Simulated assay, not measured.
Amino acid sequence: MKLVRTTAATVTAAAAMMAGALTVATPAYAATYGGECGSGYGVVNSAAIGTKGTVFLTYSSATGRNCVVAKRNTTGSAVLVEAGLAIHPVGSHWTAYDGGYYTSYAGPIYLSAAGRCVDWMGRISGTEGGKRGTNCG
């Protein structure tokens, strides 16, 4: 009976170690806002861009402007990264837009939207994240 308990404990411990090893082998890197919009801008909203990055909506009370930056989780070879910002509803094109082959992020892009809701997005290699009709006022 003691042999069975030891074997069960060994199997449980081995499974836990393997699960831990799998977690360590594939760490999740999340993009963080690093002040790309400039002094006085703070993050007021954000959204995941699938597993590829994060789009950040920031605001400065000093300038009364919103700013968007779309950041990759990890830097690397240049890929298509895009950022868009508009008064809600966006319509057929983004009022403020930046897109190109970047190693880290697209933007910053700016828009004054006092008293209005905004639509904002980030796209990395075809995967999009963002929100519509947010941060009103």
Rank of each mutant, 00 (worst) to 15 (best):
T74N: 11
R132C: 13
G40P: 08
I49E: 00
A30F: 10
A96T: 07
G34M: 13
Y101F: 14
I49L: 00
C136A: 03
F56D: 05
G20H: 07
G129W: 01
A25M: 11
G137T: 02
A21R: 06
M17R: 12
A113Q: 06
G100N: 02
K52F: 04
T32Y: 10
V118E: 10
A15R: 08
L85S: 07
V81E: 02
G137E: 09
I109Q: 07
A14L: 10
S104P: 11
C117Y: 08
V43E: 04
N45R: 12
Y29P: 15
L22S: 13
G42M: 15
N73T: 03
A78E: 07
S112I: 14
G99P: 07
C37M: 12
G133E: 01
S46I: 07
G115S: 07
Y29H: 14
A86T: 07
L22K: 14
S92R: 12
A62Y: 09
K71M: 07
L3N: 15
G126H: 00
E128P: 09
V24F: 15
G38R: 01
M1L: 15
A114F: 10
Y33G: 03
C67A: 07
P108C: 04
T103Q: 09
S39G: 13
A106I: 00
E128M: 06
V79T: 02
G64T: 07
A30P: 11
L22Y: 15
T23R: 15
L85Q: 04
A25H: 11
G129F: 00
E128V: 05
C37I: 11
G115Y: 06
V79F: 00
A106R: 00
G64S: 06
T103E: 08
M1S: 15
K71R: 08
K71Q: 09
A114S: 14
C136Q: 05
G122A: 05
E36A: 05
G137D: 08
R5Y: 13
T7D: 10
H93E: 15
G40T: 06
S60G: 02
A13P: 12
V81W: 02
A21G: 10
A48I: 05
T6G: 14
H93N: 15
Y110F: 12
T10R: 11
G130R: 03
A21W: 09
A30R: 13
T134H: 04
V69Y: 01
A8D: 09
L57P: 02
T75P: 06
G34Q: 12
R123N: 12
N135Y: 14
V44G: 01
C117T: 10
V43K: 06
C67K: 02
G100I: 09
V11K: 08
V44W: 01
C37W: 08
G133T: 00
I109T: 04
M121L: 05
E82G: 05
S92H: 12
R65W: 13
V69P: 03
